[in-house]
Amino acid sequence: MSKLLSWKDLSAPIIAEAGNSVLYKTGGWRALKPVLDQSKCIRCLLCWFYCPEPAIKRREDDSVEIDYDYCKGCGICANECPVKAIAMVEEGVG
């Protein structure tokens, strides 16, 4: 009869690498693609805050860029942009 294991001998389902979901690209979910017109952007950062992924990167000067590796195309950024600097276009067209 082998010795009974204690809880210390069991390995818990541990994910040791912090934030490794970046390896899983969710951009393929997208049907509509946000396109940002930098000339209209007023750097209000609303899209940066509202993006659920986050897939909108905030640059040093508070301008933003869209990270298509993760953008799921929800369209919140385009809907909320106060100066309509973001347009949703069909993926694969423009």
Partner: peptide, 10 residues
């Protein structure tokens, strides 16, 4: 981090 599987628009 991004890459999570929450729904679009969550």
């Amino acid at each position: 981090a991004p890459g999570h599987r929450l729904c679009a628009g969550c």
